[in-house]
């Protein structure tokens, strides 16, 4: 059951379980994987941004990709979606090998993504943004474009679909405004709604909650849960552990380019490797200061880290009470 009222208490929906085969270790095989990636490495000069031996994303489930800043989550997204090319490695989506395939072809197969830095097309209206998302448009061919009678009917259908989605995302009142006039959170919503216009099978969301005000967060979570109910697979990057616990069926933890842990959210939160992942990559920051044992000056990164640690601590301490 979904709640559209942003102020209502989060409604816990049933988690999908039994996604993996055998013991839970990093890179564990899934019962029904939609993405299978092997030996993916991407270096920038001397820095190895991604180095994933094996990872599988379960179909028709919500998988969260977590890890500290710079862990390589966005780079992995870019690689999987064809926006970047790995030094080596191969991966399949829905049985199609994607290595070397261009981004637009990957999207054409039904694997769409959003960006960490929102890409609303500012000088297109909200409705135009939405319509752009639809696939296989007759009028997108330059020769057929000059004969409106060829594409009018399809255009009307696309518009109808766009309006339904805009209503659902509470953007319908803005449909004729330029997307540039939307707030940061509304742009995140628009980007997600636009991605859904292409009727994807896998939706990859890079930090969908970042910058979204708390009133919108709950409805965004509900939208993500709805995607699963509609048969889609979701892979999302998120820093807020509450959100991850609330909606993810499976969590994959990255640190320094590698998958260091994975499993159902509750199990993963207990994992020492996860805590290390969050702390280990910040060796330049005195952990005593971060955790509040010692007085000292914190730079902005350390302040963020301290907040993350606090979240993790709370999660671990309260894991019996929350989520019930």
């Amino acid at each position: 059951m979904s709640s559209n009222d942003a102020s209502a208490a989060p409604v816990q929906r049933a988690k999908t379980t039994g996604l993996h085969k055998g013991d839970i270790v990093p890179g564990v095989a899934k019962v029904d994987p939609i993405i299978i990636a092997d030996g993916i490495r991407r270096t920038f000069g001397g820095l190895t941004a991604v180095n994933v031996d094996h990872v599988e994303i379960p179909r028709n489930a919500i998988t969260a990709l977590i890890g500290p800043n710079g862990a390589g989550k966005t780079t992995l997204f870019n690689l999987l979606t064809g926006f970047d090319k790995p030094d080596e490695g191969k991966w399949t989506f829905d049985g199609h090998s994607l290595a070397g395939m261009g981004a637009h072809k990957v999207a054409g197969l039904g694997q769409v993504r959003t960006f960490q830095l929102t890409k609303a097309l500012g000088l297109l209206t909200v409705l135009e943004n939405m319509k752009l998302g639809a696939k296989d448009q007759i009028g997108e061919n330059i020769f057929r474009a000059v004969i409106p009678s060829l594409w009018r009917k399809q255009e009307a259908e696309i518009e109808e679909r766009a309006i339904v989605l805009l209503k659902k995302f509470k953007l319908d009142a803005k449909s004729s405004d330029f997307a540039a006039s939307l707030s940061g959170g509304q742009r995140k919503l628009l980007e997600m709604a636009r991605a859904l216009m292409s009727q994807p099978t896998l939706v990859m969301l890079d930090e969908p909650m970042a910058g979204v005000n708390p009133a919108l967060t709950q409805s965004l979570l509900d939208h993500i849960l709805d995607l699963k109910e509609e048969g889609m697979t979701v892979l999302f990057v998120e820093h807020d552990m509450h959100m991850v616990r609330h909606i993810a069926d499976w969590v994959i933890v990255m640190a320094e380019g590698q998958v260091v842990a994975e499993g159902p959210p509750d199990e993963v939160m207990k994992n020492q490797a996860v805590i290390d992942a969050y702390l280990g990559s910040h060796q330049d920051v005195d952990l005593g200061i971060v955790t509040g044992r010692i007085e000292g000056e914190l730079n902005t990164e350390a302040i963020k880290l301290a907040a993350e640690v606090k979240h993790l601590d709370e999660n671990i301490a309260n894991r019996k009470e929350t989520g019930k």
């Binding site: 979606t81 261009g102 981004a103 637009h104 999207a107 890409k119």
Partner: peptide, 8 residues
């Protein structure tokens, strides 16, 4: 990039 991500 946004347009590419939509399959164009």
């Amino acid at each position: 990039d946004a347009v590419r991500a939509l399959g164009k």
